[in-house]
Computed example of a mutant assay.
Amino acid sequence: MEPVGGCSYVIRLCSGELRRWRFEGVDQRGFGWWLDEETGLGFSDASLMYAWEILERADDG
């Protein structure tokens, strides 16, 4: 699934934990940026140190 900027997604981490992340878009280097909606922390694809996958789009409404 290709994420869409400004949309939220249910993410499954390699531990099995489910998180809700919002995709903020792609920067000039081609890295995707995300916001963890629970913690409020932002990060890029390049900074992730564990495996994860997008399960579904989770936008409200």
Rank of each mutant, 00 (worst) to 15 (best):
M1A: 14
V4L: 13
V4R: 15
V4Y: 06
V4G: 08
G5H: 00
G5I: 01
G5A: 15
G5W: 02
G6F: 04
C7V: 05
C7T: 09
S8V: 05
V10R: 09
V10N: 04
V10H: 04
I11A: 08
I11K: 11
I11N: 10
I11Q: 09
R12L: 13
L13S: 09
L13T: 09
C14I: 10
C14E: 15
C14Q: 15
C14N: 14
S15I: 09
S15K: 13
R19G: 01
W21I: 06
W21F: 11
R22A: 11
R22Y: 04
F23G: 02
F23P: 03
F23E: 05
E24L: 15
G25C: 08
G25W: 02
V26L: 02
V26S: 01
D27A: 06
Q28H: 05
R29E: 04
R29L: 07
G30Q: 01
G30S: 02
G30Y: 02
G30F: 03
W33T: 03
W34S: 05
W34T: 02
W34A: 08
D36P: 00
E37S: 07
E37G: 00
E38S: 11
T39L: 12
G40N: 04
G40L: 06
G40P: 11
L41D: 08
G42A: 11
F43Y: 11
F43T: 10
S44Y: 04
S44N: 03
D45E: 14
A46R: 15
A46W: 15
A46E: 15
A46K: 15
S47A: 12
S47Y: 03
S47V: 07
L48D: 00
L48F: 00
L48I: 13
M49C: 02
Y50W: 10
Y50H: 12
A51N: 13
W52Y: 13
W52I: 00
E53C: 12
E53T: 10
I54F: 14
I54H: 08
L55H: 08
E56I: 00
E56V: 08
R57L: 11
R57G: 07
R57P: 00
D59T: 06
D59S: 10
D60R: 14
G61P: 12
